[in-house]
């Protein structure tokens, strides 16, 4: 049992698309929003925060903010955010954030994408349980939609 394992999530996927295409889907705020289900106020600019509105049905009143940490074209993209910021009545600005990193590598004509979200151990534990209670209904529905979408695609 490792306590470190509760701090990070790492996902890796092979995408059948060239790296330039994947890069655009991640670093272009509008394209990012398409699959991440958020609509952003502006472009992703290194060192700047950008606000976004959640596009998931029933959660359109929610907004979130990404602080863009680093942009290395076609290689690396990173932002910080509040992963459990689901209650509009709470000011999360004083709370720690998690770091989300996207790394892109070539695999022949395909692209290997690695996504890491880390820093969960710094997030107040009470907040986690509370946020899960609040947003799980949305995610449960979303998972069902995605399953339908991906299997028909």
């Amino acid at each position: 049992m490792s306590t470190a394992s509760t701090d990070r999530i790492e996902k890796r996927v092979i995408l059948q698309a060239p790296r330039a295409r994947v890069w655009k889907a991640i670093a272009n705020a509008e394209e990012f929003g398409t699959w991440f289900r958020m609509q952003f106020d502006g472009p992703f600019v290194e060192g700047q925060a950008v606000r976004g509105r959640v596009l998931y049905p029933g959660y359109e009143h929610m907004t979130g903010e990404l602080l863009i940490v680093r942009i290395e074209p076609e290689h690396y993209f990173a932002y910080r955010w509040h992963p459990y910021a689901v209650d509009m009545n709470i000011d999360y600005s004083g709370e720690p954030t998690t770091l989300v990193e996207f790394r892109l590598e070539d695999d022949g004509a395909n692209t290997v994408l690695t996504v890491v979200e880390s820093g969960f151990d710094q997030i107040p534990h009470a907040r986690r349980a509370e946020a899960y209670r609040m947003n799980d209904g949305g995610w449960t529905g979303q998972m069902e939609n995605i399953a339908g979408y991906v299997t028909t695609a």
Partner: peptide, 8 residues
């Protein structure tokens, strides 16, 4: 990531 895959 599943949505991103379908998208790209």
């Amino acid at each position: 990531i599943g949505r991103l895959k379908a998208f790209v």
